[in-house]
Simulated scan of single mutants.
Amino acid sequence: MDDRLAERLRLFREGGHVRPEVADFVTAELNALRDEGRTVTEATAGMLTSHLVMALTRLLDGEPAERARDGDAGGIPATDEQLAAELCAHPEAVARARAVAARADRELGAALPDSEVAFLGLHLAVLGRRLTS
Rank of each mutant, 00 (worst) to 15 (best):
E107R: 12
L33N: 06
L122W: 06
E86K: 13
A111Y: 01
D72A: 15
T79M: 11
D70Q: 15
A118V: 12
A23D: 10
A84M: 13
R38K: 14
V100S: 01
M47T: 07
E36F: 07
V126Q: 07
E86T: 15
E14V: 12
A23L: 10
E107F: 13
A104C: 10
S115W: 04
A125E: 04
G16T: 01
L30E: 05
L33T: 05
A110P: 02
E107Q: 15
L30P: 05
D3F: 05
R58I: 15
L127V: 11
L30C: 14
R106F: 11
L127E: 00
L127Y: 00
L127D: 00
T49I: 15
A84I: 10
T49E: 07
R38V: 10
A99M: 06
G121I: 14
L60S: 07
V53R: 00
H123C: 10
F25H: 01
T132K: 12
A99Q: 11
V26M: 06
T49S: 15
A93F: 06
L60R: 08
A23Q: 04
T79V: 14
D24P: 05
D24S: 09
A43E: 13
D2F: 00
G75P: 08
E81W: 09
A68F: 03
A102N: 02
A6R: 08
E86H: 11
L131W: 11
A45Y: 03
A95D: 11
A89P: 01
P77F: 14
E81K: 14
E42Y: 15
E86P: 02
T44Q: 09
A73C: 06
R67C: 05
P91N: 05
A28K: 08
T57Q: 15
D35I: 12
L11S: 03
T27P: 02
P77N: 10
A28E: 08
T49W: 12
M1N: 04
M1W: 06
L87Q: 02
H51P: 06
L127P: 00
R96T: 12
L11E: 05
A43N: 09
D114S: 13
E21P: 00
A95H: 04
R69P: 03
A97W: 04
N31F: 04
G62Q: 11
A93N: 03
R10P: 01
P113M: 10
G16M: 04
V117K: 02
A78E: 08
L108E: 00
F119A: 09
M47E: 08
G121F: 15
R19N: 03
G121M: 15
T44L: 09
E29A: 11
H90G: 03
E116K: 09
V100H: 00
D24W: 06
F119E: 06
A118P: 02
A28V: 02
L112C: 07
R13T: 14
T132P: 02
G16P: 00
A73F: 13
G121H: 11
G16R: 00
L11A: 03
R96V: 07
L87S: 01
A89I: 07
R98M: 08
L124C: 05
L11G: 01
L120P: 03
D61Q: 13
A89C: 09
V26D: 02
A125R: 13
F25T: 00
A23N: 07
